[in-house]
Design a protein around this nucleic acid. Structure first.
Length: 157
DNA sequence: GCCAACGTTGGC
DNA sequence: GCCAACGTTGGC
């Protein structure tokens, strides 16, 4: 099993939004970055665990755990002319973009903020914390995943 | 809202 | 294939 971190802007789509979906599961459309696409298309497998990260908000940080509930398939918003994510170079015959489904699993007891993550020495190597790191889908190690979860399920800071 | 750090695009 | 210009991300 592999471990991932996925970013989203809560004003656009939040962890609670995911929880409110039918089956608490949703397709992760709109990723238009080749590195992130390749990870989703080639690496993310059913049951992989996902740290759910809220970005571009008051307190950026990890808010809970989700898991991969469907493996890679074409992102159909890429050939929908009315979609914000429309890409004229993508078609049904030759899709350029791919997505997966994620399923809500468990909310942390408290948000584990970016600020707090930076203070944990075990997490120094975490991709999220590297300078200039902007990938919206990124791998995390099992140790990093477990460390973040321990923080999130621990009521006190 | 600012802006640093990226990724992408397109002329050459 | 280089690289300047432009667009985007995302913390602050």
């Amino acid at each position: 099993m592999k471990y991932w971190l996925m970013k989203t802007e809560p004003e656009t789509y939040s962890f609670d939004d995911l929880k409110g979906e039918k089956n608490q599961s949703a397709h992760w459309d709109g990723v238009r970055n080749y590195q992130a696409r390749n990870l989703m298309r080639d690496e993310m497998k059913l049951g992989d665990q996902v740290l759910f990260y809220h970005s571009n908000c008051k307190i950026p940080g990890v808010v809970g755990v989700a898991e991969v509930s469907r493996e890679s398939y074409p992102d159909f918003t890429s050939w929908d002319k009315d979609s914000n994510y429309f890409d004229p170079k993508s078609s049904e015959e030759n899709p350029r973009w791919f997505m997966i489904d994620v399923k809500w699993k468990k909310a942390f007891h408290r948000i584990v903020s970016l600020k707090e993550l930076r203070d944990v020495s075990e997490l120094e190597g975490m991709k999220l914390l590297q300078r200039g790191q902007r990938l919206s889908v990124q791998p995390v190690t099992e140790a990093e995943f477990n460390t973040v979860c321990e923080l999130g399920f621990h009521d006190e800071k």
